[in-house]
Computed example of a mutant assay.
Amino acid sequence: MQLFVFFLIQTQSDTAAAADSLSLAAQQDNMSMFELLSEGGVLMIPLFILSLVAIYVIAERWRSLNNARIEVDGFLRTVGEMLKDGDRERALTYCDGIDKPLPRIFKAGIRRLGRSIRDIEDALSNAGKKEIYHLEKRMNWLATIAGVAPLIGFTGTVTGMIEAFMDIQSLQGNVNPSVLAGGIWEALITTATGLIVGIIAYGFYNFLLGKINRMVHELENASADFIDMLQSPSSKSKKERTKVG
């Protein structure tokens, strides 16, 4: 019986010690990420700033592109019915009430009604260029980050290795791995961080650029359909031809 009690107490003691060890290890793991990044040196500051800018641009452009989408067929049909009825002012008011690229492009064309088709096409083209510019706004920031972040990381590699060799020279070759650890940490961490930031920025740049290209294609097709609609006979002219006949 005494042997069993002793075994039980010893087991509980071992369990408590193991729990304390796990708790200490967990605390060390929680601190390790910050400590790991802090070993990257001063170049981690611009990398951190670039990562924040990249997150801002990605979120802002994603939200802006999603808000710019519109049901093209329904919008074109509604505007077409208003114009066929000869209600130009109503069509302008309808476009004014929708703050999206396609209505703004159509509004520029509707204002030129009564002029030649060439003038209307020029108005649509100029308005479309303005909208494309706004759709691509800040995308150059993302492209720049995708290229600059890895270069900053590689710069950290160079400075880290320079620091390591300076330590070797100052100690006249009598060094151990722990002496070189600081420079090697800086070299590896800045390189890894720069590559991660650059890869994420480059990936989202291509993803958002694909969304922009699809939207531009939709705007161009809708503008062409708008011109075709203007060149088709209006309901008013059809009624007049019917009466004459």
Rank of each mutant, 00 (worst) to 15 (best):
M1Q: 05
M1Y: 07
F4I: 10
V5W: 07
F6T: 09
L8Q: 14
Q10P: 06
Q10K: 10
Q12F: 05
A16C: 12
A16V: 15
A17N: 12
D20W: 03
L22T: 09
L22Q: 09
A25C: 09
A26C: 10
A26Y: 09
Q27V: 12
Q28A: 12
N30D: 14
N30Y: 14
F34M: 14
F34L: 11
E35I: 13
L37T: 08
S38M: 13
S38C: 10
E39N: 11
V42H: 14
M44I: 12
I45P: 03
S51T: 13
S51W: 11
L52I: 13
I55D: 03
Y56D: 02
V57L: 09
R61L: 12
W62Q: 08
W62P: 11
R63D: 05
L65D: 11
N66E: 02
N66C: 02
V72Q: 08
D73V: 00
F75W: 04
V79P: 00
M82F: 13
D85G: 00
R88P: 00
R90E: 00
R90F: 00
T93F: 07
C95W: 05
K100H: 07
P103D: 04
P103N: 06
I105F: 03
K107S: 02
A108I: 07
I110L: 01
L113Y: 08
R115N: 01
S116C: 09
D119G: 03
E121N: 09
L124V: 05
N126P: 03
K129P: 03
Y133F: 15
Y133T: 15
H134L: 13
K137Q: 15
K137N: 15
K137F: 15
K137D: 15
W141Y: 11
A146V: 07
V148M: 09
A149F: 05
L151Y: 11
I152K: 06
G153E: 07
G153D: 05
F154A: 06
G156V: 14
T159D: 11
G160F: 12
M161F: 12
M161Y: 09
M166H: 08
D167M: 01
I168M: 03
N174M: 15
N176R: 08
S178A: 12
V179W: 11
L180A: 10
L180R: 06
G182Y: 03
L188D: 07
I189E: 04
T190N: 07
A192W: 07
L195Y: 09
I196Q: 06
I196L: 13
G198E: 04
Y205N: 00
N206F: 01
L208F: 03
G210N: 10
K211C: 01
R214F: 01
H217K: 09
E218K: 13
E218I: 08
E220C: 08
S232V: 08
P233I: 01
S235E: 00
S237W: 02
K238P: 01
T242V: 13
T242I: 08
K243A: 01
